[in-house]
Amino acid sequence: MRAILVVNPKATTTTGRGRDVLVRALRSEVDLTVEYTRRRGHAMALARAAVREGVDLVVTLGGDGTVNEVVNGLMAGTPGDGDAPPPADRRPALAPVPGGSTNVFARALGLPSQWPDATSVILEALRLGRSRTIGLGRADDRYFTFCAGLGLDAAVINRVERARRRGRVSTPTLYLRSIAEQYLFGAERRHPTITLERPGEPAQAELATVVIQNTAPWTYVGRREVNPNPDASFDLGLDVLAVRRLRVPSTTRMVSQMLARQPDPRGRQILRLHDLDEFTLVSERPQAFQVDGDYLGERDKVRFTSVTAALRVIC
């Protein structure tokens, strides 16, 4: 089996010595090539090349951003296929080794949060020939594995990324502070402008923020799951939680519901939709936009679709 290991050298939870251990462990099972990412978008290019060269497996060592780039590279069409991605069984499988600060995708697959334990699970799966095929979400031309968002949550991610570029460490405290600052000073709470449109259904207007999930949980605070849409699944369509008004009492109640042992966010300000094939978000003004925890700028219109049985993963 030919494999490529795509390493983000800035991965926060591994060291050079740890990477060497991982490489030796993988080479005991596969014919391995190691590639280090050098810039934003490089992991996507490496995954595209793996598809062209007929590689069997792409292993990632990094966070959710690295995984998202690799997935988008894997889903790119082969030469002559136009825009249509090849079927999952004609594309390299993916094995995500958690190396970032949160690792939502790997943990949603049931992999341990620590890379040595996750590596052991992946090696066992390779020996046993164990894999599963999952669905993905697509936002315009960008695939995502576990979540996307337009509005408040994307604006918070933008704040966190700016803080990290200034040297701050990504911690739950940084995220909570960024949430509080965006809630108090952002425009989403005062002027909701997003509309959700579905084929054959009435439009839902004046939404302040929208969270889209391809699986649950949406994210983690340390070890604690955050679950706006607890029924979201890799095996179904997309789930949506939208908030009409970000008022203090209703927002506080919603956050408490998302963090509960049996989450079930409800209320007059909440719109939840389950297992959607497609929908479009339109905003009167550009809104912050994110996929898989990666800020992608501002958009005033995004079309979302569910892509079933899209990707084979080793877990």
Results as ranks from 00 to 15, higher is better:
Gly297Tyr: 02
Asn8Met: 03
Pro85Asp: 09
Thr78Asn: 06
Ala260Arg: 12
Phe144Trp: 01
Ser233Lys: 03
Ala309Gln: 15
Arg245Phe: 03
Ser306Tyr: 01
Ala3Asp: 08
Val70Tyr: 13
Asn72Leu: 10
Ile179Ala: 13
Asn8Tyr: 15
Pro98Glu: 01
Arg39Ile: 01
Ala25His: 13
Leu136His: 01
Asp31Asn: 08
Thr171Phe: 04
Glu29Lys: 14
Thr133Ser: 04
Asp239Glu: 05
Glu35Pro: 02
Leu311Phe: 03
Asp81Gln: 09
Arg268Pro: 08
Ser170Lys: 15
Val302Trp: 08
Asp117Gly: 05
Arg253Gly: 09
Arg285Gly: 04
Leu271Phe: 11
Asp275Asn: 14
Ile212Leu: 07
Pro230Thr: 10
Arg164Asp: 01
Ala3Trp: 02
Thr15Lys: 11
Gln269Phe: 10
Arg138Cys: 04
Gly151Leu: 01
Glu124Asp: 14
Thr219Phe: 07
Thr171Gly: 09
Val30Pro: 08
Gly99Pro: 05
Leu207Gln: 12
Val221Asp: 01
Ile314Glu: 05
Ala163Ser: 13
Ile157Met: 13
Ser170Glu: 15
Gln262Asn: 11
Met1Glu: 07
Gln269Ile: 09
Leu46Thr: 09
Ala3Cys: 11
Pro172Phe: 00
Thr66Phe: 14
Gln182Ile: 07
Arg132Ala: 14
Arg198Ala: 09
Asp117His: 13
Phe185Leu: 15
Ala208Gly: 02
Leu94Glu: 05
